[in-house]
């Protein structure tokens, strides 16, 4: 709990500092919106279901919006991947859906962008098997809302008069609100009470929300790194090639881990 308090105060400090200092040069604000499409490769460990690590491949797409002036930057990104399948085993196939929303608020410090982020990621796993229909554990979910720190750096390069920007950022969660199934079955803990439980699973959604716990990095860790090359096609339009790598790790009696890599192509319009 002491760690949680320190992390929370640190985050609050970072975010408030960014907000207070981010009101300069509003007249120079640039808005950028873009769409991204690509392929995701992931390894998934879900110890509730399997001893095996499952390899997942999936289309991934997203929408990215940013608002930036010379001192502050805000980035909102929404991504979705799904329809994964395992190639590791004929016994059990993982079917995954992974929607993600990421909001970052950054402040320019020397040549770097430094700030905090809020991330909401849901990893929904509905395994299927040709050997058996699933019983009491037909589904698993990892629903995490995280706060953490983000660092970013851009390099502008000019080649034959064309502007190319190389960017990199990384973010690391410090504090998360985590929802996972209780041990051995798909129900959230708050559902396993007399006033909440129903065999027909009525009322499950509200119990899901009530079952969330605030955890620090020793229970849930989310780490992302992104590298991209952006090419300015016209004054307002640019294209970007993006590589993302990320790890979401749940440490519990039934641990889970998702390690993914994306290659995405994006097209962006800037005012």
């Amino acid at each position: 709990m002491k760690n949680c308090t320190i992390i929370t105060l640190t985050l609050a400090f970072i975010l408030s500092f960014s907000t207070l200092q981010g009101q300069d040069n509003l007249n120079d604000t640039r808005h950028t919106i873009g769409v991204e499409l690509g392929y995701a490769f992931a390894n998934v460990q879900e110890s509730r279901f399997s001893k095996l690590t499952k390899k997942i491949r999936s289309l991934k797409f997203g929408i990215n919006y940013s608002k930036e002036n010379i001192t502050t930057k805000q980035v909102l990104a929404v991504h979705y991947m799904g329809l994964g399948s395992s190639q590791s085993s004929k016994g059990l196939l993982f079917n995954l859906i992974r929607p993600e929303v990421n909001y970052a608020y950054l402040r320019k410090y020397k040549m770097n962008w430094v700030g905090g982020f809020f991330n909401s990621t849901t990893l929904l796993n509905m395994p299927k098997s040709s050997l058996v229909g699933f019983g009491n554990n037909p589904i698993s979910y990892t629903i995490a809302q995280s706060l953490g720190i983000r660092l970013e750096r851009d390099y502008d390069i000019s080649i034959k008069g064309k502007n190319i920007q190389v960017s990199g950022w990384s973010q690391f969660s410090l504090l998360s609100h985590l929802i996972r199934p209780a041990y051995g079955h798909p129900y959230p803990e708050a559902f396993l009470n007399e006033d909440a439980f129903s065999p027909t699973q009525a009322g499950l959604a509200s119990s899901l929300v009530k079952s969330g716990k605030v955890v620090s990095v020793n229970k849930y860790m989310s780490f992302k790194i992104s590298l991209s090359i952006s090419y300015q096609i016209t004054d307002h339009v640019s294209a970007k090639l993006i590589y993302n790598s990320y790890v979401d790790k749940v440490r519990s009696i039934q641990p889970a881990q998702f390690w993914g890599q994306d290659v995405l192509v994006g097209v962006y319009y800037r005012n």
Binding site: F49, K51, S89, L92, S129, G135, N136, H185
Partner: peptide
């Protein structure tokens, strides 16, 4: 019992009563 299923590292699936 309600049964749950688990995949071993050779792909076999074991089911046992968990409730």
């Amino acid at each position: 019992g309600g049964n749950s299923n688990f995949e071993l590292s050779n792909g076999w699936i074991v089911s046992v009563s968990v409730s």
